[in-house]
Amino acid sequence: MKKVFGIESTAHTFSCSLVSSIDGGVHGQILSDVRSIYTPPPGSGIHPREASRHHVEVAPKIVEQSLTQAGMAMDEVDAVSFSAGPGLGPCLRVGATVARSLALYYKKPLVPVNHAIGHIELAIMLTGAKDPIILLVSGGHTLITAFSFGRWRVFGETLDLTIGQLIDQFGREAGFSSPSGPKIEELAERSSNFIPLPYTVKGNDTSFSGILTSAKKLLQNGKDLESLCFSLQEIAFAMLAEVTERALAFTEKREVLLTGGVAANRRLQEMLSEVSKRHGAGFLVVPKEYSGDCGAQIAWTGLLAHLADISVEVEKSFVKQSWRLDRVDVKWRD
């Protein structure tokens, strides 16, 4: 049984987790997952430096709590993994610094993990998906991917904003704190008044900037917030459903897996479940508590990478702010 310690710090979340392997890495058990989330003041967005300051403050406490919760000491761990990108530079560097120190002091291998692949691997482990087409939706990502020839291949992605950015930036205009997804979802459920907003799909790619501009303008002109939240969700999610359906029809996969922070949205789940049904594919969604950024995604993926002998020397353990998932050779899958 292998045990890997993971540190997540790509954006607003600093989180540590301990995960152990069962059956030689086919299944994992999350022994602990402790998080602290930086919340910017209402109406303003995440400031990388402020977020990293938060991470520095909470880091020692979170490391300790995650070990205590797992009932384990750092000596017993087989490797230390960290989110090496993509993400915000100052935030990434905090996690990387903590990971390097732990790896050096306890003489453990250091394992870099791609954050997007972390979302994917954890979702696969928790849902038991076999060979899915995946829609990854969060503040940092909006893409459709499936595994082929050693890598996660991108079948479609956003050409400008991510769906999380669209939701948060509109929420900010309405005076909410980020992340504002739950608040917008709640308001949307109270309306069925449809206001047209730009629907922009290009092949399997999406563009959300038109929706943001229009919705903000309509809000400033006094349109009611509930109808705008409803329409924004209906249009943006219909776009995501459409591009997923395109990729599904193209690849002829038998499963659709929804993951990332926005995966928790019930309306999006409903739409994708109907898309899957139409094509006779199974629909899976990551459990809500693990949809957002968390240490477990890094610890679990770190464990898979460790089993495939992947590690990095401390001197070469740079963070990569725009590390694309389709650049990663995934040696633990075939």
């Binding site: 082929s148 291949r153 399997n204 193209f250």
Partner: peptide, 17 residues
């Protein structure tokens, strides 16, 4: 350019070799 990007994306995802 977006048109060509879509073509490229289709090739790299489905026909990576």
């Amino acid at each position: 350019a977006v048109d060509l990007h879509l073509m490229k994306e289709a090739l790299t995802s489905a026909h990576s070799k």
